[in-house]
Design a protein around this nucleic acid. Structure first.
Lengths: 128, 128
DNA sequence: TTAACTGTACTAAGCCACATAGAACAGTTT
DNA sequence: AAACTGTTCTATGTGGCTTAGTACAGTTAA
């Protein structure tokens, strides 16, 4: 499914969260699709199941997946409805990032072009 | 100068780095301006001088400030020349951020408007 | 020269997040 | 019944973070 980056010094459970989130955000995983079981992913990454569980628990808290006892964990549909606080945080992070890129004299046209491209691919209007 | 956020669970030296960086990036601190001494900032934040030193050491490694023994630490001029690797990292982070905002159905016009505004204020062309 | 200030470099100690190992419970599926 | 799911414990070890204290080296102002 994916691999861990051993050059990355962030906690394993954080890396797992990011990888799963990336799969969801990119559309590689669809709503209600099953993510690997705790034990299965632990085995494939050669790490402890408790670490996977911690990652999944936080992903659930943040609204990306939901877990059902004895069945598995699945991608949350209608994610966009849930998370105004997270949206605000992301916009603040965006501000910091853009401010630093501006400080480095990266032309704003380059940033805007990136946005256009990312919105161009894989996006369909979502009206719920 | 600034205060630490005790709701923030990131390491103190990381928080200090971010605060100083923000002051530099926003233009609140000018090139060659002196940042507080290790001991002075430690006293005003009521934390250990070693922790400040660790923050400053990393800020120097990343090119934001330079330190002179027995004189002090100062904001680096011509920062934009130094750091191509960091620039690449920031652009990758930008991609992730934008991808997630797109997934949340935040209109791209909103992001572009933010960029225009941030580039509008405080920016003058830098040709060296 | 002296006193007070700068950055820098150690050692020692304690706390806590992270990760592992191992076991168990509860419910589903075949 | 067996094999799978998520979930919840305890116990253990490692390493990063922070503090405290001391010291060295160089600058600056009295």
């Amino acid at each position: 499914m994916f691999q861990l980056d051993y050059m990355d010094h962030s906690p394993l459970y954080e890396q797992i969260k990011e990888k799963i989130k990336a799969l969801i955000i990119s559309g590689a995983m669809k709503p209600d699709e099953k993510v690997p079981s705790v034990r299965e992913l632990a085995q494939s990454l050669t790490i402890n199941p408790n670490t996977i569980h911690k990652a999944y628990k936080e992903l659930e808290l943040e609204g990306y997946i939901y877990s059902v006892r004895a069945k598995g964990s699945f991608v949350t549909p209608i994610y966009n409805k849930i998370n105004q606080a997270r949206k605000d945080n992301l916009l603040l992070e965006l501000d910091k990032l853009v401010a630093e890129l501006a400080y480095m004299n990266v032309p704003k046209e380059q940033l805007i072009a990136r946005i256009e491209e990312l919105y161009g691919r894989g996006r369909q209007k979502n009206n719920d």
